[in-house]
């Protein structure tokens, strides 16, 4: 994931501030990671390298821990956060199919973010409305009985909202997406 303009500076600034609150001890690794994620929304690679430097451990050890716990995310949250429920009920009636449809449409895998940072896709456990299974949560909004056609509808409506913001911007990201694919 490429860093946005000014993001590198923000990472360096925040990690520097956070390091002042902690002793450089290995047992502080989890609290540091939590604080970094709280401030930046995710754990950028650069931040993990800085943490490793600070604690005097190999970067791969930070990476190992960050990938072990589900609470840590390695990709930035998208403008539109899509969460597909993989609870028992949703899984049984085709939650996996919904997830795969999103993966195909957005051209990313579960846990990833599109290069333009418009969409992020993740799987969650039960959201608490199994009668609507399979459930997808889009920006805190519940979508029930999500079939692959509904997936297209959801993405179209999200794109529609965006095009209202400005037709040109939309074209830009499309172009950009094309470029990334090539």
């Amino acid at each position: 994931m490429e860093l946005l303009k000014g993001e590198k500076e923000a990472i360096l600034k925040h990690t520097k501030e956070i390091f002042q609150e902690f002793e450089a001890k290995r047992e502080n690794l989890i609290p540091i990671l939590q604080e970094v994620q709280k401030r930046l929304g995710y754990l950028p690679r650069l931040a993990m390298q800085k943490i490793a430097e600070f604690l005097g451990i190999p970067p791969v050890d930070v990476f190992a821990l960050a990938t072990f716990y589900n609470q840590f995310r390695l990709n930035p949250p998208g403008k539109n956060e899509i969460k597909v429920c993989m609870g028992t009920a949703c899984y049984m009636v085709g939650g996996k199919i919904a997830l795969e449809s999103f993966e195909r449409r957005l051209n990313i895998k579960e846990g990833q973010t599109t290069p333009d940072r418009e969409y992020s896709l993740e799987r969650v456990a039960c959201v608490g409305c199994c009668t609507l299974a399979p459930v997808v949560v889009v920006n805190e909004q519940i979508e029930g009985k999500v079939s692959p056609t509904r997936v297209d509808g959801i993405i179209l409506s999200l794109q529609g909202e965006k095009s209202k913001e400005g037709e040109e911007a939309n074209e830009d990201t499309k172009e950009k997406l094309k470029g990334e694919k090539q």
């Binding site: 690679r45 451990i57 190999p58 970067p59 791969v60 050890d61 930070v62 990476f63 190992a64 990938t67």
Partner: peptide
């Protein structure tokens, strides 16, 4: 310090940063 364990459960692998 080039390699370590990444992820967990069935996804666990020996990986680099």
């Amino acid at each position: 310090g080039a390699i370590g364990f990444a992820r967990r459960g069935l996804g666990r692998t020996v990986a680099t940063f």
